[in-house]
Each structure stands twice: as structure tokens, then as C-alpha cells.
């Protein structure tokens, strides 16, 4: 399912194009900027955008998001397979780096179809009303070689909370591989209710 993340990628194009059009309109109306100047502006814009696009492509990772939760003493493994991530991460420029992810809770799988359907319902992800889960970085700090800690805003069911996620980066050439693990309290996000058998804590593993 298309979860609309591309809009976020396309948005800068759109806004810049509007900007260009406004400039061009201005040119045509005033007639004060010559062809060379216009070419220069466009070239500048091109070189400003391209690096951003190259480093911040949205893509669908091969690995699903994994989660684990204890139910009656048994660990239930679940997956969310439909998700996208947009990465602009430079270990040397942490303040300018960003990671954003967006997942579709409808793609949740726990091995029991009826349970998945229940998780779609209003007691859990309420997908009719809240069609996505999002994760957006706020800041990063280094925690040793290839190890980092990110502060992210996690949004589930419309509830936004800041969480800390330790993650590692392994880089081969231009290819970056991230792996992070974190734990959330499902009740913080209104996922179900207090239960005698179902743990509040959910362990989440994200790899891309």
C-alpha cells in the first residue's frame, strides 16, 4: 500500500518550482533579469537540490520492523512489513542529519490473522482513524565508533512522544546499514489496555 511518504520527498521540488515560477513571472513582468542571470539562478538551485535528493531518498527497506511482546509468558513476534524510511545521515554532521520513517499498521502480522485484525481495530492501532505510525529524528549524539543515540519523535495513534533510540551504523562504500532497538510502553500510546497477561512493554527492532 502506498502510504504517501513520497509527498515528503516531492515537497521541496514543488515549493522550489513555485519559487522559480514566481521568479520567472517576476522576470517576465519586469524584464530586468537577463538570460545569464536566470541561468545562474537555475544552476544554483540545481546544485542546491541534487545533493539533498541524493542523500534523502525515500525507500522501502527489505527487512520489516520487528516487535516482540510477552503474552501469558510467551514471546509473541510480530512484523510490520509496509514501511518507508528517508535517511540523510552523516556521522560527521550529526546536527544536519535526519532519519524519518513511516509505517503502515495495516501490514502488521503476528501469525494469527484474527489477532492482526484485532490489532487493526480501535482498541489498538485504530487504522481507520490513524493510518500511519511515524518516527522522526530530533537530534543525534555519538556513542562510540559507529554507535549513536538518536532522539526521535514516535507517533502512534496520534500520540507523539520523544524516545531515545540507540543504533549502530555500518557503512560499506556509499551503502549505510542502520540497526536500532528500543522499548516502548504500549499504554503510553493507547495500544490496548492494562492486562493481566499481556506485557506493557514492546521491544522494537528496526533495521534498514
Amino acid at each position: 500500500m502506498d502510504i504517501g511518504y513520497l509527498d515528503i520527498v516531492v515537497a521541496p521540488w514543488g515549493s522550489l518550482r513555485k519559487c522559480c515560477v514566481r521568479r520567472e513571472n517576476f522576470n517576465y513582468l519586469s524584464g530586468k533579469i537577463d538570460f545569464r542571470s536566470r541561468l545562474l539562478i537555475l544552476t544554483l538551485i540545481f546544485f542546491l537540490i541534487v545533493p539533498f535528493l541524493l542523500s534523502a531518498q525515500s525507500f522501502k527497506p527489505e527487512n520489516p520492523i520487528q516487535f516482540k511482546i510477552k503474552n501469558a509468558g510467551i514471546t509473541v513476534d510480530g512484523l510490520i512489513s509496509d514501511w518507508e524510511v528517508m535517511v540523510d545521515f552523516d556521522p560527521k554532521k550529526l546536527t544536519q542529519s535526519s532519519i524519518r520513517g513511516k509505517a503502515n499498521p495495516e501490514s502488521i502480522q503476528t501469525g494469527i490473522k484474527l489477532r492482526d485484525k484485532h490489532l487493526h481495530g480501535r482498541e489498538y492501532f485504530h487504522i481507520e482513524k490513524f493510518s500511519f505510525i511515524s518516527l522522526e529524528s530530533k537530534s543525534f549524539r555519538s556513542k562510540g565508533k559507529n554507535a549513536f543515540i538518536g532522539i526521535f519523535e514516535l507517533q502512534i495513534r496520534g500520540v507523539k512522544r520523544e524516545i531515545e533510540i540507540p543504533f549502530t551504523l555500518s557503512q560499506t562504500g556509499k551503502q549505510q546499514m542502520f540497526k536500532g532497538e528500543f522499548t516502548i510502553d504500549r499504554l503510553d500510546y493507547g495500544l490496548g489496555e492494562k492486562s493481566l497477561v499481556l506485557s506493557d512493554e514492546v521491544r522494537v527492532v528496526v533495521e534498514f
Binding site: 503474552n71 501469558a72 509468558g73 510467551i74 509473541v76 503476528t110 494469527i112 489477532r115 484485532h118 492486562s195 493481566l196 497477561v197 499481556l198
Partner: peptide, 15 residues
Amino acid sequence: IIFAEQGCVTCHTPP
């Protein structure tokens, strides 16, 4: 254990 694995506990929650 099967009762828990199969998710029966979700509806038929002990005790």
C-alpha cells in the same frame, strides 16, 4: 503453552 502461543489468552484471559 499452546494455549498461550495460539493467542487464546487474549480473549480467554486467566484467571
